[in-house]
């Protein structure tokens, strides 16, 4: 992965319509974005479609990227996740059993090898997540990484969806207060 500063520079090129910059941006970020959407969609064909849509959107909207508001990778991940979540909430059926490998990728445990890449912002966030009850923390991580809906979480945690909503919002509020931003 390139540094954030290098990605910002590539984004500026993409905003000017520079296809070579776009290809380099794709090469630097495709595996991260594909990993993110595959965990949510659990199907390679859907994930591939979402990645196509995501990069076309990045190509179209690079000019609206603002380095003061986001880092390139969080901006791109947000686009990819939103696209994947829209698909997963609207799709009629995904057969999880067909894709055992993809399902494995959808598990909620973060990759320990990536810990060396942790920046200060992530360390603060993880410290705040660490202050939540274990169950609440799992709820938040399953939702973020796996794209689980309230209804799916309600089944797993054996609680009404409204209770899940209350837990989620309270947990997120605690995270916000803990981060102090």
């Amino acid at each position: 992965m390139l540094t954030s500063a290098e990605l910002v520079w590539l984004m500026a090129g993409v905003a000017r319509g520079d296809q070579a910059a776009f290809e380099r941006l794709y090469a630097a970020t495709r595996a991260k974005l594909f990993g993110v959407v595959l965990r949510i969609l659990r199907r390679n064909d859907l994930a591939e479609e979402v990645i196509q849509e995501t990069y076309l959107k990045i190509w179209n909207n690079a000019g609206s990227f603002d380095a003061k508001l986001a880092t390139p990778i969080t901006w791109m991940v947000a686009i990819a996740r939103n696209r994947a979540l829209d698909v997963v909430r609207r799709k009629s059926e995904v057969s999880i059993e067909d894709e055992p490998e993809a399902m494995e990728a959808a598990g909620e445990e973060p990759n320990p090898l990536a810990r060396q890449e942790m920046n200060d912002e992530l360390k603060r966030l993880l410290a705040c997540l660490g202050q939540l009850d274990e169950e609440r923390r799992r709820l938040v991580l399953l939702a973020y990484y796996g794209g689980w809906s309230r209804e799916q979480l309600a089944v797993k945690f054996e609680a009404p969806a409204n209770t899940i909503k209350t837990w989620l919002r309270r947990s997120l509020l605690e995270i916000r207060e803990c981060l102090g931003s």
């Binding site: 495709r30 595996a31 991260k32 990484y145």
Partner: peptide
Amino acid sequence: RRWERRLGELNVLVSPVEPPPAVWEAI
């Protein structure tokens, strides 16, 4: 946007997965 910024760093812990080359061709 503020929430995207607060939670966005969680992506660091996602294992990268290479998409097939056909995806880039399609894009």
